[in-house]
Structure formats: structure tokens, C-alpha cells
């Protein structure tokens, strides 16, 4: 008995463990700060640059000058404001359409048993792994043929190509994991498929819809390549292209400040959307991970 106790390593004093806990806590905070700086610094730097004028831009002062001339110029710029509207139109339409198509497809893929289901899911997944450049020329032909060239609707059509696959996948997973008995209870209660979708599934799908919707929105809002290819004139541009094409007053001036101001401006709606829905996004992304 005596021996058994002696063999166990002696316990260190409580102060040792207290110190250890504090050190670990300090390291955690340090790591967190590192990550925050790494991710937020570019955005902060854009903001700082956008409030500086002329030569000050080339001095790397970390504090913003808080001169909002560029922002005022942007608001007065009808082309930029037009492109904001275009972007909003394209992004909102893309989001709504891909959610509607995604839910319908997901309901079929998740609930209705048909032999080609696996193949369908695979094809849907494959579509989303093609790089944009690969489908660009084909889409260009298609857009021309449909007579949609240089129209924002051309962008909606092409963005759906990237957003529908992932909305379908995420929503299919959700519907698969949706308790079957809940649906059966609704069937017994006399609900049609449509009523089940509207009254039972949709209200409970809020988080998944929010998270997939936001991903679709961000994708459509930020897309550059298709937007550049399928629009020709200024009044049809979306924001990323408009920013890319902002020109200085002379050939030799790079309009750094304006570009930064524009970038900061167009990111604000995204931040607002994400902040409003952030709790739902997290809930949606982890839905099904744990049985609720």
C-alpha cells in the first residue's frame, strides 16, 4: 500500500497549475489576435487608403486620414451607382432563383426514390467543379444565341450554373436528414405536398436557406469573369467590373484611392447581410451534424 502511493508522481503545487492555465490562456488570445489581424488587415488597409489623398497614399501610415472625398465622388458617379443597382438586381435574383430551384430539386433528390437519383447527384456535383474558364466560350455562344448578350439577365443565367449545384447539395442533405415521421404526421393530418413544403419544411429550413442563400448571394455579388465577358456597356456593368474599369483622370494616374473607396463600399452590404444572418448561418452549416 505504502509502495503504491510512493510510486505515483508527486503532485505539483496549485500555483503551478494556475500559472500554466494563465500561460495557455495568453497563448490562445495571441493566436486569436494573429488570425484576426491576418484576415482583417487587408480590409482595414483598403479603408485607410480610401481616405487618403494624392501623395499620402504612398506613405504607409496605418491611421486613416478620414477624408471622404472619394466616397462623395462615388456617390456622384452615375455609372458606379448604376452598377450597384445592377449588382443588387443580379445577386438578389440569382439567390432567389437558385433557392427555388434548389429546394425543388432537393425535395426530389432527398425524398423521392427513383433509380437515377445517385447519378443525378453526381452530375450536379460535377457541374460545380468545372472551372469557369472552361465553360466560358460555350456559355458565350449560348448567351448570344438566346439574345441575352450585354444584359444583366445573362449574368443571372450563368451564375445559376454555379449556385444551383451547391444549393441543391446542401438542401438535399438537409431534406435527407429531416425526420420522416414529421412529414408522415403532416400527411396523416391531411397536408398536400405543397402544404408540407410551405408549412412544415420551409419554416424549419430557415437556417439552411439563410446559409445557402448567403453563399449564393456572395458568389453572385463578387463574380468578375462572366460579368466582364457578357456585358459590354457601362450601364449594364456589375460592381466588380465597374471597379476594375475605374480609370484615373490621366493615363498615368492609377486611381488607387477611388478603387479602394469603391471596394469598401461594395463590401458593406455583404457585411450587413452576414451580420444579420450570422447566427442562422452557423446553425445552417452545422445542421444535421448533431441530432437535435
Amino acid at each position: 500500500m505504502q509502495n503504491a502511493i510512493a510510486q505515483r508522481a508527486p503532485r505539483k503545487p496549485a500555483s503551478f497549475y494556475r500559472l500554466k492555465r494563465r500561460v495557455v490562456r495568453g497563448l490562445q488570445i495571441f493566436a486569436l489576435l494573429l488570425v484576426l489581424i491576418y484576415t482583417l488587415f487587408p480590409y482595414y488597409w483598403a479603408f485607410v487608403s480610401s481616405t487618403k489623398q494624392g501623395a499620402a497614399l504612398y506613405r504607409s501610415a496605418l491611421l486613416p486620414a478620414l477624408d471622404f472625398t472619394y466616397y462623395r465622388q462615388l456617390i456622384d458617379n452615375p455609372i458606379f451607382m448604376g452598377s450597384l443597382l445592377n449588382s443588387a438586381y443580379v445577386a438578389v435574383s440569382t439567390t432567389l432563383l437558385s433557392l427555388i430551384i434548389g429546394i425543388s430539386a432537393a425535395y426530389a433528390l432527398g425524398r423521392i426514390d427513383f433509380p437515377q437519383r445517385r447519378a443525378m447527384l453526381m452530375i450536379v456535383l460535377m457541374i460545380s467543379i468545372f472551372p469557369q474558364v472552361v465553360v466560358l466560350s460555350g456559355l458565350f455562344e449560348l448567351i448570344n444565341w438566346l439574345g441575352l448578350f450585354n444584359r444583366p439577365s445573362a449574368l443571372i443565367l450563368t451564375y445559376l450554373l454555379s449556385t444551383v449545384p451547391f444549393t441543391t447539395w446542401i438542401l438535399t442533405t438537409f431534406i435527407r436528414e429531416f425526420p420522416r415521421e414529421l412529414e408522415e404526421a403532416a400527411i396523416i393530418d391531411g397536408c398536400s405536398h405543397f402544404r408540407i413544403l410551405m408549412k412544415i419544411l420551409l419554416p424549419l429550413m430557415g437556417p439552411s436557406l439563410a446559409s445557402t442563400g448567403i453563399l449564393a448571394f456572395i458568389l453572385a455579388w463578387n463574380e468578375f469573369l462572366f460579368a466582364l465577358t457578357f456585358t459590354l456597356t457601362d450601364e449594364n456593368r456589375t460592381v466588380p467590373v465597374a471597379i476594375g474599369l475605374i480609370a484615373g483622370t490621366s493615363r498615368y494616374e492609377y486611381p488607387f484611392g477611388q478603387i479602394m473607396a469603391a471596394s469598401v463600399t461594395v463590401t458593406l452590404p455583404l457585411i450587413a447581410v452576414v451580420l444579420v444572418f450570422q447566427r442562422r448561418i452557423v446553425a445552417g452549416l452545422t445542421a444535421g451534424a448533431v441530432k437535435g
Partner: peptide, 20 residues
């Protein structure tokens, strides 16, 4: 005949109450 027209009521093991 579909379930809703059979005049039956079903009580599930998991209760299957509508959570919302």
C-alpha cells in the same frame, strides 16, 4: 386511398410534433 382520406390517426414513437 391516400393516408389523409382513410380516417386514421397515427401516434408516432418519436411523437413527431411540429417543432415550430
Amino acid at each position: 386511398v391516400p393516408a389523409s382520406r382513410r380516417g386514421v390517426a397515427f401516434v408516432f414513437q418519436s411523437y413527431a410534433l411540429y417543432p415550430h
